[in-house]
Design a protein around this nucleic acid. Sequence first.
RNA 1: GCUGCUGUAGCUCAGUGGUAGAGCACUCCCUUGGUAAGGGAGAGGUCGACAGUUCAAUCCUGUCCAGCAGCACCA
Length: 648
Amino acid sequence: MGQITLTFPDGNQRAVEAGTTPAEIAASISNSLAKKAISAQVNGRHFDLQWPITEDASIAINTMKDDAPALELIRHDLAHIMARAVQALWPDVKVTIGPVIENGWYYDFDRAEPFTPEDLGQIEAKMKEIINARDPVRTEIWDRARAIKHYEDNDEPYKVELVGMIPEDQQIRMYWHGEWQDLCRGPHLQHTGQVPGDAFKLMKVAGAYWRGDSNRPMLQRIYGVGFRTRQELKDYLTFLEEAEKRDHRRLGREMDLFHLQEEAPGQIFWHPNGWKIYTTLQDYMRRQQERDGYVEVNTPQVVDRKLWEKSGHWDNYQENMFIVEVDEDHARQKAVNALKPMNCPCHVQIFNQGLKSYRDLPLRMAEFGSCNRYEPSGALHGIMRVRGFTQDDAHIFCTEDQIEAEAKKFIDFLAKIYADLGFENWRVKLSTRPEKRIGSDESWDRTEAALGSACRAAGYEYEINEGEGAFYGPKLEFVLRDAIGRDWQCGTLQVDPNLPERLDASYIGADGEKHRPIMLHRAVVGSFERFIGILIENYAGKLPFWLAPRQVVVASIVSDADAYVQEVVAALRAAGVRAEADIRNEKINYKVREHSLAKVPVILAIGQREVEERTVSVRRLGDTRTETAAFDGLLAHLAAEARAPDLA
RNA sequence: GCUGCUGUAGCUCAGUGGUAGAGCACUCCCUUGGUAAGGGAGAGGUCGACAGUUCAAUCCUGUCCAGCAGCACCA
């Protein structure tokens, strides 16, 4: 074997035999590094310490101090250790795959009986045993036939299938954690003892389809989370608790915003408080749209199937539609209708009324469109995923040449709104042509490029979402990051030449000929229902003053203050502040507690002193201090604060 | 839709093969109290729905409905 040259992070170089492993390199540097080493970066690739280096390379030895490789290895080894533990406890369980995911890993098993929460405890204990045993991790490359025979002999049908799926030009690698063997591309740690035994936890069991295909058998997936230290695990569990406290379903009840009930699954009963948020947001959006050159329309809920057949929804989307059949006895003729799941076909109907000129384009047609979709029961989730919802929907009818400018205009529009709503942290994804698509490659080239340059023109970087576009055109997706780091896809802009074609939309061009417009489907918040859920969770219920359903509660301390309380409430309301009086026969402590829990932003307390001095005692949500203020001055201040950001 | 779990008072949850309990909330009474629960009394339930087993079912069995977690879905 020849010599190769290794370059270290400090720039030093060393010539070694080809086939030297990172483990040997680490050992040659120091004993302690050999022990601490977990893996290596070889030419930037994450390398197992046992893999031979066969060409000139840059090399860096990783230890637990290197965040990304450390976490990946810990979680990956935990996946193997868990699978080993499961097979040790129940030898007839079939293993499948077990990848690393955010914060942890999962492993899918095939087992006749369901895993129980008690089983998880048992598995965890067995995993700790394996970790304490400090079993060595060993790897080998096998040829395909041997791997298949091995798994056939061991009655592991899923693994046989996996081996079969590995491309011909790829090596088939086996790993051993102690005596337990698994097919795996690696890399892994040196021995099981390198996994922190007190920084992982098995979280839950759930069903998952084999290879993500709902036509294939359902396996049992065990999820775990794993970190380097006990503290990191604790922090993560604390984060989960925080997310739980922010759950919009819980806050929706506590703040008396809405409820759902069995008789209308996936549809929302909005209570006065929740509906106030909704209408405040909608009024705000309407003002924005009017300012940005949209016209607002409204279209029917129940529409004959003939239109859905033309639009293509009948063939492609019927499963998700509420179909309405009117009985012959009650209808003059039997008709099959569907509740609209989308507004676009109806908007084209409006566009199609009368002749349109190129001078009418771009035509921005908006609707707060109420839609109903028969979402699969398992998809429903609070007010975030529902069957009845309203979109801030609009369709921009334009020419292909106008796409870029319209897209840019839309991004500016959306950025302003997100900022007003308190979301400064968001990113853009450009979804490109999928495998199954219509339209020529040239037109995909043009429209993808138009969206990309619109982003750049608006000053935003974007990531590519390869192959995730709709079958008819590319799209931009806008993803918000909330206060605790969770991502929500809300805004979207989709290029659609298909629907105008199917529904025969046209305009007369400067040349006097008929032309086909392009449609841009676009939304900023997506659905109001879901977006309000996101707002609630983002703010943990403590909405900005202008969005808070009850902005001020004026609470009496003694009943002699009642008349002044009512006067203050009346003055606040006259100034456009949503205020309520609380003159119940309760102590101020009780009232403060109750309104604080209900997330009312401002409590004004009024006792004898305030009555005499015409002042109020002000307490802001989240602040235990109080401050006495002259009411007249405060009134102007609160009135200003109550105005939406675009009116301030 | 699939897998697993759950469904008892408005909310959070105990409980039992012989038709039910707590805390908070609610109503009334006492208390007028200065910034996160003052005291007392009272009212409140077809134990998710429908079948079956049983002398007897909220409890056991089955079907359905809804919710939760994950998967699949989100033209």
